[in-house]
Design a binder for these strands. Structure first.
Length: 266
DNA sequence: AAAGAGGTCAACCGCTACCCA
DNA sequence: GTGGGTAGCGGTTGACCTCTT
């Protein structure tokens, strides 16, 4: 029962990669490009599972990887994005050029979590630790009713659950990965105003979240991340653009009145 | 110096979404 | 519309490293 394994485990190496294996993989990808991971090991002369090759390349060998310590700025970005996206490491990584989802995930678990805890912030809810219990309860409530404010919405201190929010709503089916509720009253919290650029949208276009049909999860991510960078026109899949009801007309470009992002209403 | 504890991170695993015939 | 193959994701593991006693 179940699927056949992605490779013949009896004939594949596991564990740490050797320099020779790395070099073979690098050489092969330089010559043929990424993709077709299943057949790559054989073609490259590697006794590895395709999955393993892909991971090794993406997380370690890719030439555009930054590696090295995370800067304070990166820390802040990760914290902000995590507060909005939860454990969507690949999406978070997409906003940090040169960083991989695995790297960020590890960094989060080993450094940032601790940093937040030591500063009295719950790393899951991003709320002050002493109100974590209350936050958990509120979060459940929010999933059923009150959505969080969108990512780039102008700070609105007095309308935490306005009608606009209802249109740009965000729900998720994944309990453990639900974006924590935006806090509107927690003064000492992490500043959520995110003013970083969008280096590339390719990743989002390709990501499962964006390609999937209009799930609530997709709406959430689109709503948070799609607003275009300066000079960039974003054209989110129509099924996801929950903001279009807020002032767009079909075929037009414009700013979402709720999240202030640049959209095209398809 | 040695041993144990704790931290780090590369790699693996299992699941899901997507693509295409 | 369906099912198989594939890619990608997030969680977990375990080997290795560093620190502490």
């Amino acid at each position: 029962m179940g699927r056949s394994p992605c490779c013949e485990k009896a004939h594949t190496n596991k564990g740490a990669w050797t320099k020779d294996e790395d070099q073979r993989l690098i050489n092969y990808i330089r010559a043929h490009g990424e993709g077709n991971w299943r057949s790559l090991p054989k073609s490259a002369g590697l006794l590895r599972c395709g999955k393993s090759c892909r991971l090794r390349w993406i997380n370690y060998l890719r030439p555009d990887l930054k590696r090295g310590n995370f800067s304070e700025e990166e820390d802040e970005i990760i914290i902000k994005l995590h507060s909005l996206l939860g454990n969507r490491w690949s999406l978070i990584a997409g906003r940090l050029p040169g960083r991989t989802d695995n790297e960020i995930k590890n960094y989060w678990n080993t450094h940032i979590k601790r940093k937040l805890i030591s500063s009295g912030v719950d790393p899951q809810t991003h709320r002050p630790l002493n109100s974590a219990a209350a936050a958990a309860i509120t979060q459940l409530d929010f999933r059923n009713s009150v959505p969080p404010a969108p990512l780039l919405a102008p700070p609105s201190k007095d309308n935490s659950s306005s009608a606009d929010d209802t249109n740009c709503n965000s729900t998720t089916t994944e309990e453990s990965q639900a974006p924590p509720q935006q806090r509107e009253e927690s003064g000492g919290d992490v500043d959520l105003e995110l003013s970083i650029g969008l280096p590339s949208q390719d990743k989002y276009m390709k990501s499962a979240s964006f390609n999937s049909s209009s799930s609530a999860e997709s709406k959430s991510i689109h709503n948070f991340l799609w607003p275009a960078a300066e000079g960039v026109v974003a054209a989110p899949p129509s099924s996801m653009c929950v903001c279009r009801t807020l002032g767009f007309h079909k075929g037009q470009f414009g700013n979402c009145q709720s999240c202030n992002g640049l959209y095209r209403y398809l």
